[in-house]
């Protein structure tokens, strides 16, 4: 689907005037945007800028103080995610979404094998055929370039980069419409990071996924995101096409952020 056709279609995610306060402290404020299928949105800003609060609100983990997050769910169509009942919201999170955490420990079950971690979302969807799930898991391990002979190893026996690959497979195997990524390469060596970014970019394009990726790393943002939200002190100070924002930043804070990137 082309961008113009996409625009004509319904958005996948619609965020309106979203604010989250922690008492008198602002987490994020007056955030509004829309996302369409296949788009990759980067949320950038430094620590404490409200990226994580916004991500939590968007992903159904933290109810906003005011404002709305609407998502085009498979079961209920466009719905206010905090208006859904808890089981419906959890089902939507399970069926329609993925969430790749920065720390694999937050996104994987460390006590079960890598293979079972990848297969679990299928079981959560009600699949009950072991052989089929096993094959699907092997196919996904290949897709994220992991040695399939290690399918039954526990995550702790994998390197950090490999753990993230397991996490990526686990969050894509069930065919989500939207995947949240929270600093997915944050804890990795740069060389490992580059391979993973490359892999994720390819998967995103091949699957036509919509992704919301939170990062403080401008290089990651440039590689992954179609467009950016720049956050500062809980507010979106600039938004636009990724290369526009990074190459011709308009807001003082974005100019500072971009000029602070070390050049090598």
């Amino acid at each position: 689907m082309s961008a113009v056709e996409r625009l004509a279609s319904e958005p996948l995610l619609r965020v309106a005037d979203l604010s989250r306060w922690y008492g008198s402290i602002v987490g994020c404020r007056d955030v509004s945007f829309e996302m369409h299928p296949g788009e990759v949105l980067g949320i950038v800003g430094e620590s404490g800028s409200g990226k994580t609060t916004l991500l939590k609100c968007l992903s159904g983990h933290l109810e906003p103080t005011s404002g709305k997050v609407e998502f085009d769910t498979r079961r209920h169509g466009m719905s206010d995610i905090y208006g859904l009942s808890e089981p419906d919201r959890r089902r939507m999170q399970r069926e329609d979404w993925g969430f790749v955490h920065q720390n694999p420990r937050d996104g994987l079950r460390m006590r079960v094998s890598g293979g079972a971690n990848v297969a679990e979302p299928l079981m959560n969807l009600g699949r009950r055929h072991y052989g089929e799930m096993r094959s699907a898991t092997i196919a996904w391990l290949e897709r994220v370039e992991l040695d399939t002979s290690r399918i039954d190893d526990k995550p702790r026996n994998f390197s950090g980069g490999m753990q993230q690959r397991i996490q990526v497979a686990r969050n894509l195997i069930h065919g989500p419409k939207l995947v949240f990524m929270d600093e997915p390469t944050g804890g990795l060596d740069v060389s490992v990071q580059a391979r993973l970014l490359d892999l994720m970019r390819e998967l995103v394009r091949d699957l036509g996924l919509a992704v919301i990726i939170v990062t403080h790393d401008m290089a990651v943002a440039r590689l992954m995101a179609d467009r950016l939200l720049v956050m500062r002190r809980g507010e979106v100070v600039e938004t636009g096409l990724t290369d526009q924002v990074l190459d011709d930043p308009q807001h003082a804070y974005t100019q500072l952020l971009v000029s602070s990137v070390l050049q090598i």
Partner: peptide, 21 residues
């Protein structure tokens, strides 16, 4: 919450592990 909403996919993970092993 899993009991409340009948989210029992996780239990199958242990059976899956069993067959794998």
């Amino acid at each position: 919450a899993m009991h409340a909403y009948e989210e029992y996919g996780l239990q199958y993970v242990s059976l899956y592990e069993n067959i794998s092993a």
